[in-house]
Simulated scan of single mutants.
Amino acid sequence: MFKLDLSLDAAPISAAFLDLQQKHLPFVLALTATRLAQRVKKGTIAVMKQRLDRPTPTTLNSLFVKYAVKNGQPAKVYFKDSWTSGIPADTYLQQAVGGGQRPHKRFEKALIARGIMRGSEYAIPTAPFMNQYGNVSRGTMTKILSGLGAAETRTGYQANASGSARSKRKGNALWFFSGDVGGSRGVWERKSMGMGDAIRPAFVFSGSAPSYRTIFPFFKIAENIVKANYSAEFAAAFAQATATARP
């Protein structure tokens, strides 16, 4: 989260500014901070499109602005930190913003909890299972976890494959399995071919944590946008306050 909490000490002082009645100053600072926050959002999205690898519409729409309030909250630019389902943007963008090693994802934690994958391993998806954004869809991961008996369960709902007729029709337990094939550990898919069945890897287990360099320094980008536009936005807010101020 990037905050714009402007104070009178940061304001460019002029004779006209000193003549402005004290009661209008909070409005000028709040309006300046809000407009700068809107600039930060617009500029950040432009950088995301350039630097992130095929960002999804959900990722690009996950940045929000909270307006500043006179004598109250500062303006804020932040990534949504919760969704009705899935992983929020402020979680999965951490490596792009700060770099470093990737922590285990929910999918990997489920495999580790079931004893399918070691705690020191990471699941790396293969190309056939990734969508146009380079991700594996939630639906595909749910099918795999169900087939492996590692899906999350909750009261009144069982996601794991079972011996029921409905579960057998889905075939998740038949098509997905884990193990060592040809010296490679991972999750595999059985495919029915014309000449018989074949298998292909869905996820390959790696003993090394994926590492990321900082490709999207959000806070530095925001600071640069504020520095470049502060004077102009303050002048515009000051002019608006002066024009609308009551005598």
Rank of each mutant, 00 (worst) to 15 (best):
S184T: 14
A232M: 12
R118Q: 14
F238G: 02
A241C: 09
A232N: 13
Q240Y: 12
E233N: 13
S206A: 15
R154H: 10
A11L: 12
R114M: 02
A110L: 11
L31E: 15
A222I: 00
K76G: 00
R138H: 13
M1I: 01
V97T: 08
A30F: 01
Q132P: 01
G98A: 11
A173D: 15
G43V: 00
R35V: 00
F218M: 12
A236T: 11
D81L: 01
L4F: 04
D9A: 02
A113V: 05
L174P: 00
D9S: 01
A11R: 00
V69F: 01
G98N: 15
A232F: 10
S164D: 11
K191L: 14
L25F: 03
T91C: 04
S192F: 13
G207H: 06
T44W: 02
E108K: 03
V47W: 09
R138D: 15
F205V: 03
I112G: 10
V181W: 13
S85W: 07
A222R: 13
Q94W: 10
R51N: 10
L6A: 00
P128R: 14
A209N: 07
Q50W: 02
T242C: 03
M117F: 07
K3E: 06
R166A: 14
F216N: 06
K3M: 03
H24T: 03
A161M: 11
G72Q: 07
T58R: 04
Q94N: 12
Y230R: 01
D180V: 12
K76W: 10
Y78D: 05
R102S: 08
F203I: 06
D197E: 15
K41V: 03
D90E: 06
V65P: 04
M141K: 15
I116S: 04
P201V: 08
K41C: 04
F129V: 15
A110H: 12
A151T: 08
G149A: 08
S120L: 02
P74Y: 04
